[in-house]
Design a protein around this nucleic acid. Structure first.
Lengths: 110, 110
DNA sequence: CAAACACATAAGCATACATTTATATGGCTG
DNA sequence: CAGCCATATAAATGTATGCTTATGTGTTTG
């Protein structure tokens, strides 16, 4: 009787937890925010101009990302800076992109 | 001028593509189906009894997973077997679970 | 070919979510 | 403290999504 070494036993995974994360990553604008934050912490106004979205929409999504624990907040003067809470977020997004691109290219089966 | 070696340049990532995948992973029942398929291909009726969901609901989500290219379909007699389209799906779900668990445990900053 | 089984689809409904517009809060500066 | 800037929140709306109930399609077997 030998256990699978690399991957966590699939049955120990809580779908609610994964769904919680996946929902946060399921929106294009939230992903664009996360990608923008990958190069370092940024203020709301910077994100608004960089991503060309409205300020309330940025605040709304940042709130969601904070709720999902994906970003941390830091106030400095009148500015509010958001930062990626964990570097693995970038990795996961990149990995998902790689898989999605392959799937869409029909190079799914090896 | 040196490029980041490990990760794909973040700016090359298409948020629409990632969102497409994330949406498919954002539902608990779809995740449960994928986890059930991690141990091998299964028929709809097997999934229905294993996951204790209604047959139309299972078909509905399997259709979504197929649309997202995450599963492949194979008919054998009256049975229809679904299978994970790519082994990386399991890895990504496991990685997401690991991150989500850590985030929820407030061990986000290193 | 008729009945039974496996699965898919359609319609309907309730809820969740993304977005906009409008307004409020909070901090800085004159 | 008055006005401005940065951000947050609220309300409103349209749309997407998950789920159930009901029905259709396809396959096997008697």
């Amino acid at each position: 009787m030998q256990k699978v070494p690399i991957l966590k036993n699939i049955s120990t995974i809580d779908p609610r937890t994964v769904s919680f994360l996946a929902k946060a990553l399921a929106d294009e604008n939230r992903l664009r925010i996360l990608m923008a934050l990958a190069t370092g912490k940024k203020s709301v106004s910077t994100l608004v101009t960089d991503l060309a979205i409205s300020q309330p929409l940025a605040s709304h999504h940042l709130r969601e990302l904070k709720r999902a624990l994906l970003v941390t907040v830091e106030r400095r003067g009148p500015f509010v800076y958001y930062e990626l809470a964990d570097c693995r977020i970038e990795e996961i997004v990149a990995t998902m992109h790689g898989l999605a691109v392959d799937l869409l290219a029909n190079r799914t089966t090896f």
